[in-house]
């Protein structure tokens, strides 16, 4: 048996991985949401209301919360994904704020002071969820649909010319992404045992984006690496005390310069070579010429 501390770390790690994998699905189509914490919030509240107020089992509640988040995701995706990437960013961000404000004033769900009374979750349940998602992604990335995601991410116009229903495919990916994020939210609520609307704000959305950007968007296991690194870094860097945040920031900047494609993934342009470093120097000449 794991001791309580290890179990807490493992569960946090698992939730981070689930969030990262969920986000990866929409990122794989090149659509970056800036309000994914809203789906987490929807999942967390749906499941918590069901387990606390209606005494449902966590497993069933978790599935219902995934479904609820998927419906919300399909709705937002349908509005935002037909527009440009900038509108998608604005709409998803605004959506997360609206969800937060609505939950703040919803007394039944505890309002701004939060909802509690959940019983815990287990690493086993989390492992099953991650397993299911990984199996899904394993087959997705080897399928026609996976190929269409990559085409849309790389060149949406070309994908349209190929006859891909870009909007339909992107909305579907967005809804599945929201569903997984909702399940992660449900499990996270049953780990923290108290949830407040403020917990699912912009910082949480940003953290989910960073998992995937840091890990790399080309392969789904990049998202896993990103989630593990970003969850473990604060623990590993504990000895740095107040210097940890600046170290963290510097590491991120260095990584984005040296590996803009993320930790995992092959660079189309830059690799970690001396030439890459030389290209960063001021006297670059026609470095960007015939690549």
């Amino acid at each position: 048996m794991m001791d309580a501390y290890t179990e807490a770390v493992v569960i946090r790690l698992g939730i981070a991985i689930l969030l990262a994998l969920g986000y990866w699905i929409t990122a794989a189509t090149g659509k970056f949401s800036f309000g994914h914490a809203a789906f987490m919030s929807i999942g967390a509240y749906t499941a918590s209301i069901l387990t606390v107020k209606f005494d449902w089992s966590l497993e069933t509640s978790m599935l219902v919360s995934g479904l609820t988040a998927a419906v919300a995701g399909a709705f937002i995706g349908w509005i935002a994904l037909r527009l440009t990437i900038l509108y998608l960013a604005i709409i998803t961000f605004a959506f997360a704020e609206i969800v937060k404000i609505l939950l703040d004033s919803w007394d039944y769900a505890g309002g701004a002071s939060g909802l509690f009374g959940m019983r815990g979750t287990t690493p086993q349940l989390l492992a099953i969820c991650i397993g299911v998602v990984i199996v899904y992604l394993f087959f997705l990335t080897r399928s026609r649909k996976g190929l269409s995601y990559e085409a849309i991410r790389e060149d949406e116009q070309a994908a349209r010319a190929c006859g891909l229903g870009v909007t339909r495919i992107s909305v579907e990916a967005f809804a599945v992404s929201a569903a997984i994020t909702g399940v992660a939210g449900a499990l996270s609520a049953h780990e923290t045992l108290i949830i407040t609307p403020a917990q699912f704000g912009a910082p949480q959305s940003l953290l989910i984006i960073l998992f995937v950007v840091l890990g790399g968007v080309q392969y789904f296991w990049g998202a896993i690496v990103g989630a593990v690194v970003l969850t473990m870094l604060p623990i590993w860097f504990d000895f740095l005390e107040e210097y940890y945040q600046i170290t963290y920031g510097l590491l991120f900047v260095a990584l984005m310069i040296l590996r803009p494609q993320g930790i995992v993934g092959s660079g189309t342009e830059r690799r970690f070579t001396m030439r890459a470093l030389a290209r960063l120097s001021p006297k670059r000449g026609k470095a960007d010429g015939d690549g």
Binding site: L147, A159, L164
Partner: peptide
């Protein structure tokens, strides 16, 4: 079927994957 200006092949996909996408519809 439409061959867009500037070719617009998908550079990170293989030749075969590009062709398969053409049959997507």
């Amino acid at each position: 079927a439409h061959v867009p200006e500037g070719r617009r092949v998908l550079p990170t996909l293989t030749v075969e994957e590009n062709l398969r996408l053409g049959a997507f519809a």
